[in-house]
Each structure stands twice: as structure tokens, then as C-alpha cells.
């Protein structure tokens, strides 16, 4: 499960994108590519200081301007299911490099993730 395949799995889900300049974008991921370029819908943009907000119906983000992405906790489970489905489809075993090892470590506070994501500007600098 590579970082970019996790991003692929997150399509259609809410996420938070922070750019290198500190601006954040909250929205639903519509599409992404191998360069981490993204398109989002129903976006709330926040200024680096966290004091100004804009609503955008959709936006495009060039991958190389991104600092990090935050995705809902559930996505990790979904990517595991995707992997199982793919293995069944190809009928082969084996793991890819960097693949996730068996589960481990229970998740805490799942279900609050959407609140956290949409209230993030409260905590941000």
C-alpha cells in the first residue's frame, strides 16, 4: 500500500490538504494522479493565518505545492479491502514493497475524524 495508492482509494472522500505556504483546503477528493495533482469539490479554503475563509465549488491543486494531506481513518481499512480484492483478481500471493504488515495497533477516536477534519482550522496556527 503505497502513499499514492492510499490517495487513490480516498477518491470521493473528504480530506484536508495543506500547501507549503500554509493554506489549507477542505473538500471531497474528485481525482488525483501520479504527481499528486488533485481536484477537489465543495472546498473551504483557509488562509495560512487561519483567519480568512473562502468557499470554492471546485479546485485544482498542483501536486508539488502540497505539504501534506489528511484523510479519514476509515481509508486504511478500505485500502486493505482493495488489496485483497486485487489479489483475488490476479490469483497471486506475495506482497509489494513497503506494503503494510498485519494490522496491529488499534485505532482510537475513529468516527470523530470528520469533525476533526472540518474543525481543523480551530487548532491551526
Amino acid at each position: 500500500m503505497l502513499p499514492l495508492s492510499l490517495l487513490n482509494t480516498a477518491q470521493g472522500h473528504p480530506m484536508l490538504v495543506e500547501l507549503k505556504n500554509g493554506e489549507t483546503f477542505n473538500g471531497h477528493l474528485v481525482n488525483c494522479d501520479n504527481w499528486m495533482n488533485l481536484t477537489l469539490r465543495e472546498v473551504i479554503q483557509t488562509s495560512p493565518e487561519g483567519n480568512r475563509f473562502w468557499r470554492l465549488p471546485e479546485c485544482y491543486i498542483r501536486g508539488n505545492t502540497i505539504k501534506y494531506l489528511r484523510v479519514p481513518d476509515e481509508i486504511i481499512e478500505m485500502v486493505k479491502e482493495d488489496a485483497v480484492r486485487q489479489r483475488q483478481a490476479t490469483g497471486g500471493g506475495g506482497r509489494g514493497r513497503g506494503g503494510s504488515r498485519s494490522g496491529g495497533g488499534g485505532n482510537s477516536g475513529r468516527g470523530e475524524v470528520f469533525d476533526v477534519i472540518f474543525n481543523i482550522s480551530y487548532y491551526d496556527y
Binding site: K67, L69, P72, D73, I76, S108, I117
Partner: peptide
């Protein structure tokens, strides 16, 4: 996964739960 952001000021620190990060 299960990420927290830890802020240090002097000899004090505070944790903010943040969840899953994909860091460039």
C-alpha cells in the same frame, strides 16, 4: 497512522490528535 501533533514550548508540551497523514 494515529498521528498526534506535539507542540513544545519551553519544558511544556501539548498533543493534538490528528489521525492519518500522507506527508509529501
Amino acid at each position: 497512522q494515529d498521528t498526534i501533533e506535539r507542540i513544545y514550548v519551553g519544558d511544556a508540551y501539548g498533543d493534538i490528535p490528528r489521525g492519518i497523514f500522507i506527508i509529501r
